[in-house]
């Protein structure tokens, strides 16, 4: 489903844009407004991060947003309600991003079934390697949802093919080592890595980690199918307020 949507959208655009929010940061109402701004500005997909107390793969910006959201009382149930609201209001695919414990405690099967109910199309779980995710993968696929797996610059060719066989929808390529939110030098040195990713999967490629300005996205055109903006919009909301999000995205 996702794959078809991506391929169809690519007929009219050179590259698609996926953005990210932490649900409940800086508040639930604000999250709704941010999503609205993003959709109006033409974003193609949105990741909704369910906050977790131990976000191991996230850098300072998203980490603080997770903590703040939890302090304000965001619950997993609240995130499902939020997801239901946005997916019924806006006509683009929404994905969940969170850590495995959130699914595990909820019950993987029920979590996946409830994703279907609220209209979420897929999920990105950065601490769940495919070897540990058999139950999850099966539940997702049998419910027609997309488990999105990750390629990293240290992933071997053989492993990329294995990961690709477990995933669905698209592959998330980390542009560099490290956590979210740090700068990445998007230069031709990365060409080889993206060619390697392309060679080892027939799924569309999303590239994230450090994408934050127009030049980054221009570089990615022709190499990736989706550019992912993560921490940068959170930073923008912190510094300039929600209203700045729309213009920022249009500028990309």
């Amino acid at each position: 489903m996702l794959k078809k949507y991506i391929q169809k959208s690519l007929k009219t655009k050179e590259i698609l844009l996926m953005t990210h929010i932490v649900v409940g940061y800086p508040s639930l109402d604000a999250s709704m407004k941010i999503v609205e701004e993003m959709v109006k500005a033409g974003v193609d997909l949105i990741e909704l991060q369910i906050p977790f107390s131990e976000p191991m793969a996230d850098g300072p910006v998203i980490l603080k947003a997770n903590q703040k959201s939890l302090e304000l009382g965001t619950t997993v149930k609240g995130c499902f309600e939020f997801a239901q609201n946005v997916s019924s209001r806006f006509d683009i695919p929404f994905l969940f991003m969170t850590y495995y414990n959130i699914l595990y405690k909820y019950g993987v099967q029920s979590f996946v079934e409830d994703m279907v109910k609220v209209g979420i199309k897929g999920a990105i779980i950065p601490d769940l390697p495919p070897e540990e995710g058999l139950e999850y993968e099966e539940a997702m696929k049998s419910n027609n949802l997309c488990p999105i797996y990750i390629f990293s610059p240290t992933t071997t060719d053989e492993r990329m093919r294995y990961i690709s066989s477990c995933g669905k929808g698209f592959i998330y390529c980390m542009a560099r080592k490290g956590v979210t939110g740090k700068t990445t030098q998007f230069s031709n040195e990365l060409d080889e890595y993206f060619e390697k990713c392309r060679k080892n999967t027939s799924l569309p490629l999303a590239v994230g980690f450090g994408v934050k300005e127009k030049a980054d996205i221009d570089y990615l055109k022709g190499k990736a199918d989706i550019a992912v903006i993560g921490s940068q919009t959170i930073r923008l909301v912190d510094e300039k307020g929600i209203e700045a999000v729309g213009d920022f995205i249009k500028g990309l």
């Binding site: 191991m56 793969a57 495995y100 950065p126 601490d127 769940l128 390697p129 070897e131 540990e132 797996y149 990750i150 390629f151 990293s152 610059p153 240290t154 992933t155 071997t156 492993r159 990961i163 980390m174 080592k177 490290g178």
Partner: peptide
């Protein structure tokens, strides 16, 4: 070989660390 003791243990690591592990 994935470090399980009954149902406990495992290696829930981000992809970037797989090669290191």
């Amino acid at each position: 070989d994935r470090g399980y003791y009954g149902e406990f243990g495992g290696a829930f690591i981000p992809e970037i660390l797989v090669a290191t592990f």
